[in-house]
Design a binder for these strands. Sequence first.
RNA 1: GCCUGGGUAGUAUAGCCAGGUCUAGUAUCGGCGGCUGUCGCCCGCCGGACCCGGGUUCAAAUCCCGGCCCAGGCGCCA
Length: 440
Amino acid sequence: MVDGEKPAAASKEVRPGSVKPELDGQRVAIRGWVHEVRDLGSLVFVVLRDRSGLCQAVFSRKGADANLQAALDGLTRESAVRVWGVVKVAPQSRMGVEVRGDGLEVLARAVERLPYEVTGKVPASMTTRLDHRILDLRKPANTAIFLIADTLFDAIREYLRGEGFVEVRTPKIIATATEGGAALFKVDYFGREAYLAQSPQLYKEELVTVFDRVFEIGPFFRAEASHTRRHVSEFTSVDIEAAFMNYEDVMRVLEGMVVHVFKRVLDERRRELELLGVSLRPPRTPFKRITYDEALRELEELGYEKSWGGDLETPDLRYLAKRHTGFYFITHFPTAIKPFYIQPDPSNPSVSESFDLMYQWLELASGGTRISDPSLLRQRLTEQGLNPESFKHHVAVYDYGMPVHAGWGLGFERLLMVITRITNIREVILFPRDRFRLTP
RNA sequence: GCCUGGGUAGUAUAGCCAGGUCUAGUAUCGGCGGCUGUCGCCCGCCGGACCCGGGUUCAAAUCCCGGCCCAGGCGCCA
């Protein structure tokens, strides 16, 4: 930086993404990261980037003072810099506008040789991308995913609060397996055995007797050795639970929330959707609903016979997706394949008041009416081979006025996959944890 | 856990099936030089790699065995 060349006090601090033709003639200062440098000799183009977007600054070496010369000569990609100059409409530039640079200060220099091409000139494998995740996230299309995620969080909270839900946090370190089923991570809790929570299920049910409607957005853990594009060890769940509601009521909350989220993303994240090449349309409610029995019948029509009582497996769901594009619910699963807390249908106890929200063949959420009768709950615990003694704190709550209630859990990242059209869940998690990856 | 496929410069790949012509090609990258309108800038020169161990063979990036690491599918689930 040079005497007399410091940005004038009058220059306006702007982000790269807000350098628009409307600012023509304005003195600006911009902080960001060097996305690209194209050095033509006496003319140097520097593309600046931050989360708002890109802009081009152009510097002339002719007449540049020694400090600017030195800064341009030693400029490396991904360095954090401050650039100042005058905005000019520039038809000869593809962006249509650029900053005629007067000065450039390197705020934090990046090393010459990066392990990863942020500009995307060379493709990178998933492993390489995740090993250098911070550089990978700087790629505008990847940044876009998480700006959309930010809107998702906000839209979900906005919608659920609007429906009278109170945001809560339940423990992630627990003493016993909550539901059986999924494998849990064991942790050493001051010498005692403890586990990482796989869901807030029991806590959120208990909490409806206090707040009547609760929701939680939080991390949960599964120690399954799964190795697919839609499973990770640590994921984010959006959970709700509501007193005085049944499965049909919470299905309406769920589809309403999905539509609301789509609308907010469409309103606020046009640029990001464009970066991802996604054209979104909000789904229409009500979503299609088919029962488990109907699903079996459809499978049969498609030529895949399946005996009643088993869970719908991945291949089954893929077949069903041929008929059901977009969002749809599958309801009334056999009681036997559902967790102990699910309410059997009073008119036919072999099926339950349960549902899964599907997007094509991807399971996004599952939920249902919960058992509210204490003796039925104890009976179901025993039937599922669980020890009622380990659930005594939970079951006790049912003796203190537990009304009919219902809820669901939604995989946040899976919804994000649907919206961004990303097919590997690792890409929609900042720092994913899977069977093989614990760092960075 | 089971099944399939794969590991070549910092990154992404060609070569492998049909061993020798590979002192391993290309792109990107980094260094140096040139270039006043680039926008995947361009041009020239330079730099950098066969996952590890063993075996077969006159000869191994290439074939065989073992190991390590990874990707995907399934099961299970969100």
